[in-house]
């Protein structure tokens, strides 16, 4: 078997944090004693990604997602473990690695703040030494797909968040990298722009680009990725096909209800067997299996017992995914085996 495009073994990154007591006295004591605690941002990650694969790398905030991406891109130097990306050790040969990859950080822009977007693009053209014809063709294609035409003469600071993300995506892809890392690419975007970005990512994957998508928004990965890797506390807790996770999660819905007057929760439990009702008589949640009940049935059952002032239905979020993994709801596959 060929070596996978991305290969990490026992990858670990440890940060040192000053260990201080509270307040001024603690700060003063720290000056003398210098105590630190070791914090494992990621702790023994094994990850293989084959060429052309699209992997969702998900977890809660602070789970170690971004740190992994920063190790794979050569931004950070690992504390221990091995990593190779397209045959290159990123932190040892950062520049060679940089040519193979495109990176988008949702919260940071690589556009020049003071210059028109077009100027940033020509800088990148020269920086990646893209031949002029290739550059023209790629830019034309990206301009069409991402509708960049109106943005090219605008300076970075004048762009809205959504426009900025489109321009940033193009900036990361101008040199047609075989590997693309996307770190929270839809954070802070409105639904319409989110959909557009997701559609663009689908095409990217369909064209054979290897994609590692980091997110805590499950909506990002549907249709884009076939494989999901879940991290928590710096370790991989699940690695397998996305379809399994989706089916599992697709079953569960929560309805949050505020009745006009408090109701007896026992009566609701009796009316909706097999659901889980929690909360207070004045405000409660019903967790139900979507295949057992429709949302309408649940609402009708509640309305039969009380007048509803307000209600809301939540789709499962990343917190639920992580919880399900710990509950054993998902069968853990052997790590490193792409499905």
């Amino acid at each position: 078997m060929d070596e996978p495009l991305i290969r990490a073994r026992a990858l670990t990154k440890t940060f040192r944090r000053p260990d201080k007591g509270p307040g001024l006295a603690g700060s003063a004591r720290h000056l003398i004693t210098r105590k630190y605690t070791e914090h494992h941002a990621i702790d023994g990650i094994d990850l293989d990604v084959a060429a052309g694969e699209a992997v969702a790398y998900v977890g809660r905030n602070g789970a170690g997602k971004s740190t992994t991406v920063k190790l794979l891109t050569g931004i950070l130097v690992p504390s221990s473990g091995e990593v190779r990306v397209a045959g290159v050790v990123p932190h040892q040969d950062r520049i060679a690695n940089a040519r193979n990859i495109g990176v988008v950080f949702g919260q940071r822009t690589q556009l020049w703040w003071d210059l028109p977007v077009r100027e940033t693009f020509t800088l990148l053209r020269d920086m990646y030494r893209i031949p002029p014809e290739r550059y023209r063709a790629t830019l034309a294609r990206l301009t069409e797909v991402l509708d960049l035409g109106p943005l090219l003469p605008v300076t970075g600071r004048k762009l809205s968040l959504g426009q900025r993300m489109r321009a940033d995506l193009a900036a990361a892809l101008l040199h047609e990298p075989p590997i693309v890392y996307l770190d929270e690419p839809t954070i802070g975007l409105d639904i319409e722009v989110k959909d557009r970005v997701r559609e663009f990512l689908r095409d990217l994957v369909a064209n054979g680009t290897t994609v590692l998508l980091t997110t805590h928004d499950l909506g990002d990965i549907e249709d884009v990725c076939r494989r999901i890797v879940i991290v928590d506390g710096g370790r991989i807790i699940h690695d397998g096909p996305l379809a399994a996770v989706r089916d599992e999660l697709a079953r569960e819905r929560s309805m949050h209800v505020q009745p006009a007057v408090p109701v007896d929760l026992a009566a609701i439990r009796a009316a909706l067997p097999g659901t889980e009702v929690s909360g207070e008589p004045g405000e409660f949640s019903i967790r139900f299996d979507r295949f057992a009940y429709s949302a309408g049935q649940v609402a009708a059952a509640v309305m039969g017992l009380a007048e509803i002032r307000d209600f809301r239905i939540d789709e499962p979020g990343i917190e639920d995914v992580v919880r399900r993994v710990y509950e054993g709801g998902l069968v853990e596959s052997p790590t490193g085996a792409p499905a």
Binding site: K70, G74, I75, R94, A98, R108, M127, Y128
Partner: peptide, 13 residues
Amino acid sequence: SGLVALDLTQPVH
């Protein structure tokens, strides 16, 4: 501000 991360993804010294 951490923007140096972006400088580090560029193929230049």
